[in-house]
Amino acid sequence: MLDLTVVILTKDESLHIARCIELIKSLTSNIILIDCHSTDGTQAIARSMGATVIEHEWPGNQAAQFNWALDNIKIDSEWILRLDADEYLLPELIDEIKERLPKIPVDVNGIVFKRRHIFMDRWMKGGIYPVKMLRMFRNGHACYEQRMMDEHLKLLKGGSIEFENDFCDHNLNNISWFCKKHIDYAIREAAEMLNTEYNLSGNAEIESGLDEQACKKHKLKQAYIKKPLFWRSFAYFTYRYFFKGAWRDGREGFLFAFLQGWWYRTLVDAKIFEIKKKCGNDTDKIKNHLKEEYGITL
């Protein structure tokens, strides 16, 4: 077993949690769930598979929940791996971790993996693959940046390296669940984009310590924000579907690019349009509106 702890954030993940744990058990027995009061049997499944379950109220976003775990849970291992319940490591990545982790140079504190999206049981090879994410780090050397959406782990010191093989984001819920999730995401994404545009929080700059793709993604989003409402969501879909090759992934590829790339981004723009109609460019009004209407404090 490796000197590694896996931390998984959960809320009603009985559909996924057994798969996630089963595929990481060969790496470590130190598996911790930070669970937000699941009622569907998630906790019992995890405990039956040897995981430790700690309940903690949802603080509003994944970054805050994971940072709470780092600050409050005793973790003795050298390395920490962060996973979602609907994610899993491919066998090739598991073998690579077993082989390479004990040999990592002391000046390397983070490891970047490639994430592949499995949508409607099909690998989305076009559009956005590969998404490269810092997901493994030396204990005490990383935390999440403070964002409501699209948050990334950042290194506090030291460098990172990239592994060759993939992990998967493979949610087994239906399309209705997928759409509802993105409806819930839309107001947080809108608030994040308004914060970037107007610096509502006073601290909207890109944080240091992020890996290369995370920095690039944030810079692209800053450029995206400057483009006209609604037109930009269509342009983003066109780029993903035609130029990045999502069309090669069949009907599933069209649905994934359309729902996540055009429909969702249009919904975010609709939220921004609605807020600006009520508040104009008055930053105080925007902040008060977000707090009173959606419970979002910046």
Rank of each mutant, 00 (worst) to 15 (best):
K132S: 14
K180I: 10
N173A: 09
A51W: 12
F254S: 09
E293D: 08
M149F: 03
N288L: 11
D86N: 14
T238K: 15
W247A: 11
L27W: 09
L93Q: 06
Y294L: 02
E212M: 01
D211K: 00
D35K: 06
I94W: 03
I118K: 10
L229V: 06
T238R: 13
F137Q: 02
D12M: 10
L101C: 00
S38A: 08
Y294V: 01
C143G: 00
I296A: 03
K125Q: 14
A235H: 13
C179K: 15
F254G: 09
D169K: 05
K278Y: 05
A214N: 03
N109Q: 09
I128M: 13
D71R: 14
K180W: 07
N30H: 13
S201W: 05
T283Q: 15
A69Q: 05
K11F: 09
K291M: 08
M193E: 11
F234V: 14
L153E: 00
N171S: 08
G158T: 01
F237D: 07
L194I: 09
D84F: 02
P130C: 10
D166H: 10
G261E: 11
L200G: 03
R138M: 03
I161W: 00
D12T: 04
A270N: 10
T52L: 11
G250M: 13
K216A: 09
I73L: 11
W247N: 08
H16Q: 05
I118S: 14
I94Q: 12
L172F: 08
S160R: 01
M49I: 03
A142V: 00
F163Y: 12
K181R: 15
M136R: 00
I275M: 07
N203C: 04
L155C: 06
L89T: 02
H37A: 12
G295Y: 07
Q65N: 06
E151M: 04
E252G: 14
L2W: 05
Y294M: 02
R240V: 12
D84T: 02
E212L: 05
V7H: 06
D166M: 05
A204D: 10
F66E: 01
H182Y: 13
F167W: 09
D284H: 11
N203Y: 07
D3T: 02
F242N: 05
R122F: 11
E212T: 05
L81Q: 04
E164L: 11
W68E: 04
G202L: 04
D95S: 15
M193C: 05
K114I: 01
N165Q: 08
Y294S: 02
L23E: 13
G202H: 06
I75R: 07
P91H: 12
E57G: 13
Y241V: 12
E87Y: 03
D107R: 04
R47V: 14
G127M: 13
L134M: 14
G202P: 04
M136W: 00
I175Q: 10
L23R: 15
D282M: 10
G158V: 00
Y241G: 13
R19E: 15
E274A: 11
L220I: 04
K216T: 07
T266S: 15
A223D: 13
A85F: 06
C168W: 03
D35C: 08
D166V: 13
Y241A: 10
N67L: 01
P130F: 08
A270M: 15
F178L: 06
